[in-house]
Nucleic acid binder design. Structure first.
Lengths: 145, 145
DNA sequence: ATAAATCCCTGTAATTTACTAGGTTTTATA
DNA sequence: TATAAAACCTAGTAAATTACAGGGATTTAT
């Protein structure tokens, strides 16, 4: 039941990006330093988020990354799925793998895995990037006391 | 976010065991056939459940396995944790690993992983073996219509 | 004594993970 | 137009994990 570094780092990347001023591009070198993540590894993880349309990249000098959607329209689930792959505990409850058979699972064990998958989705699909931003801001400065 | 075969097979084993008549021991060879799981692999997974006290084993001829607790006192979480290990998505939200540090996670991403862990526990710690037995029986014969 | 069962230990091929390394391409600017 | 800064692409790799198989040792009913 582990989340890999790809999932964790991608979430930290997009949150870091979202917390920077919106008018200037954010470069991976800086994210790498702030987040203590290897630049080379980041370079390998982040393009998937560009491909999915969650961030926009500009190449060349003065280039970098911009957030490409409103933070309330990006969920944790979206980020994790693009970098981590499916979040289903076993294949046969993965809705993207239709017609995969039940793999010898019985009705009741299948129920367990479905409930588990629903619980996982219930969390990651309902926490938005905006939620994370809000949490960071209140945790940092306690603005709203 | 995968459950390994150890977790899946251990759950299928104990459910299979619970569904057999309680007066006779259940042998792995039979479970192996019914569940289409390699005997050798089962032999390697099941002793952990004996160690945890969920099943009782008798060696020698006429030996085998008995359920050692009431089905309503065994949760899916208990089984998964003994064979699968921790169910925490990342180490720093694992309650068993106290003082492990936050591993560069920020307040808000830590919140995500905690919520996720709580959701996982909310499912596996509230489904009992008895629940699975009931589901199997109703699915099989529709006894309670 | 036999044999049926659990138990224990080792090995192993395949896969995944978490990276590193070395380049190519794009593009602003001097 | 040369330079350099940035993203992008591809390959390699050491370590860990997964999913088993194999060969026994041990226990114990008959």
């Amino acid at each position: 039941m582990r989340i890999s570094t790809k999932g964790r780092y991608s979430l930290r990347f997009i949150l870091d990006l979202a917390l920077q001023p919106k008018d200037k591009p954010v470069i991976l070198k800086d994210v790498s330093k702030r987040q203590s993540i290897s630049l080379k590894y980041l370079e390998q993880i982040v393009p998937a988020l560009t491909g999915a349309g969650y961030v926009r990249s500009v190449r060349g000098p003065k280039g970098g990354y911009y957030l490409n959607r409103d933070p309330q329209e990006i969920t944790v689930g979206m980020i994790l799925r693009t970098t981590e792959g499916s979040l289903a505990p076993i294949d046969c409850v993965d809705p993207n793998l239709e017609g995969v058979g039940t793999d010898n699972e019985s009705e009741s064990t299948l129920y367990v895995w479905k409930e588990l998958y629903d619980a996982i989705c219930g969390v990651v699909d309902h926490i938005t990037l905006q939620d994370l931003i809000d949490r960071e801001r209140t945790a940092q400065g306690e603005y709203y006391i």
